[in-house]
Design a protein around this nucleic acid. Structure first.
Lengths: 335, 335
DNA sequence: CCGTTTTCCTGGAACGTTCCATAAGTCGAG
DNA sequence: CTCGACTTATGGAACGTTCCAGGAAAACGG
């Protein structure tokens, strides 16, 4: 009859046989649900313990139709994504859901990363700064709830920072320090770059500095920062302050300045974006616009779970205010 | 009849109904097994695509008793781990196994990361520079195959770089450039640090530079690098060359040197370790000891699969030779 | 003492796959 | 033709759970 094989794990049926009850009853007891007598309950637990029984989560999940899994698609090379994932773990900790990570690498695109998560039957997807075109995202949302972080897109739930406001903060700060020739090194087509460019322009206009507006093509990497910085320094009237698309790019800028014999912030002020761990390092000590990672991830998890549990309202965009973190790379204008 | 519910995901049966074939046949096609005609195969794939069907891995592995999952435990904050994970995806690509990522964060320790993977029924674990004590690792290996990357430990399969050799390469290179006062900023208790310290000592001895041996406490971060570098520069006779535990720490060192008015490599040469993407950046351009990420990850995946498929030999350590990558931070000694 | 509720328990049908046994058709050889 | 061998397809039994409908026995209220 029912024999617990030596090589295969014991099942509900094995425990039931040993305790002399039905499978259903054992199932109840294991889940700590009411409906079993005190004495029987003890007997079942004893039998389970003796057999070294552990419920098989795959079968459990299969039957109950739930995986309690939140899929996360992220770029493992992006410092800021790493910060977000770290915070997501914390945010998900007490929600009753687990995180399933799927990385985008130079050799593994977003489609592949997403497919993997779908096979794991994640109940919702949290995508960090996805590059997937809007229509493909829209198609995804018909299959399962999708929360997009750090990129604005129609047809999905979005949590993002008020990037334009972020550049207002940066420009205003520099303006108060007396800077006029404030340049911006942008992020090209990266998520958020357009908003930051717009914010920069608006803020310059609002401060009456329209004629000093100067936008240089940058990118997400140190490399992009060095190239852009060199271009700026080669001018006859280089800027006295630079706002940069993100921290990583800003470290490239800093490096060029230092090597070019410019002092920071005495000769040139620099403001980054993200407040990634890079910016906090004592020797970089970068003034930067902080995205509220804690709030964003908390909201993302909450939103995903709301969707899973049936909230069926229209997709909503939540915009989180940024905050300026003043450190050592900004100072009074001297020119 | 069989209707694809709007709210529930499509199953094999749905695809079968739409393509006008049996569930079994669809199953074959999805697994890319022989036994289906070319025309039918196409029809099935089309139907699956139209429905947006994705196989349910839980049901799949419940039935087959396998998960075909390799669990990866890694520190998401470590640049080098990120490089390794990236390469692991590539290495696993054609093996028939998938990767399940579980990150260690400041808020989520290795035990937690490991437990998660065990519940997912991974068939083997690949652990990157784990801090878990040896006896706990040993207990793990009784439950499933464990491959340890970038850390030497008894009682498990280990793939690591010949770290001592790495420092031989670095010191010899500096020696040939005429350097004598070559210091080492170490990695404390980090995996590999002890070997690198030893390699440094041996190489100095072998070059007849024993009396110039100087080891300063460092660590894995930029922060640690800055502290150590300051300590070195404060000396009456500062070294003309520095070997550093890893690239990240080395960037901290570089920063202190630049700010202190030292030119690199004219005044001081610096050698890093790992050849992480950090080192390759044009403006850092760090001479460094490269770990052969490609080979290491390939071996790790192969080893894990061998174990899964029953190889029951003793645990083995595979040591991969490092390679010196000469870039711009090393030059002839001038003192 | 009879109905009604409550408590404790059981059997069997799902969940979405894979795997096995088998069948129908095709083809070439004897 | 008939036989076997191959190819292509099918139906149904697992896998280890949970969930649902129900049933027997005990408890309760009148």
């Amino acid at each position: 009859m029912q024999m617990a094989d030596a090589d295969s794990r014991p099942t509900l049926a094995d425990v039931a046989a040993r305790a002399g009850v039905s499978k259903s009853l054992v199932s109840l007891v294991m889940r700590d649900e009411p409906g079993a007598g005190a004495e029987t309950r003890r007997r079942v637990l004893k039998a389970a313990d003796e057999l070294g029984y552990h419920p098989d989560s795959r079968a459990r999940l299969l039957r109950s139709g739930r995986s309690r899994l939140l899929g996360v698609v992220f770029g493992i090379q992006h410092a800021f994504h790493v910060d977000l994932v770290t915070a997501l773990y914390t945010a998900a900790r007490d929600s009753g859901y687990e995180l399933a990570l799927s990385a985008v690498t130079p050799d593994r695109d977003e489609t592949e990363a997403t497919t993997g998560l779908l096979q794991d039957r994640c109940e919702a997807l949290i995508m960090l700064g996805p590059q997937t075109p809007a229509h493909a995202l829209a198609r995804l949302t018909t299959r399962l709830p999708v929360v997009v972080l750090a990129r604005g897109v129609r047809g999905a739930d979005v949590i993002r920072t008020a990037d334009a406001d972020g550049l207002h903060l940066a420009v205003d700060h520099l303006g108060r320090l007396g800077h006029q020739r404030i340049a911006h090194i942008d992020g090209g087509r990266a998520p958020g770059a357009a908003d930051r460019r717009r914010g920069y322009r608006e803020a310059m206009d609002a401060s009456g500095l329209s004629r000093h507006v100067q936008i240089v093509a940058g990118g997400l990497t140190e490399q992009a920062g060095t190239t852009a910085a060199r271009a700026l320094l080669d001018q006859s009237h280089p800027p006295t302050a630079i706002t940069v698309f993100n921290d990583r790019c800003a470290t490239g800028v800093l490096d060029v300045l230092l090597r070019g014999g410019k002092r920071v912030p005495e000769d040139v002020s620099v403001v980054g974006y993200d407040d990634s761990h890079l910016a906090r390092l004592a020797h970089i000590n970068l003034t930067t616009v902080a995205q509220d990672v804690h709030t964003m991830t908390k909201l993302a998890v909450a939103r995903a779970i709301e969707r899973i549990e049936g909230a069926d309202v229209a997709h909503r965009t939540i915009v989180v205010p940024p905050q300026l973190v003043i450190r050592g790379t900004t100072g009074p204008a001297t020119t």
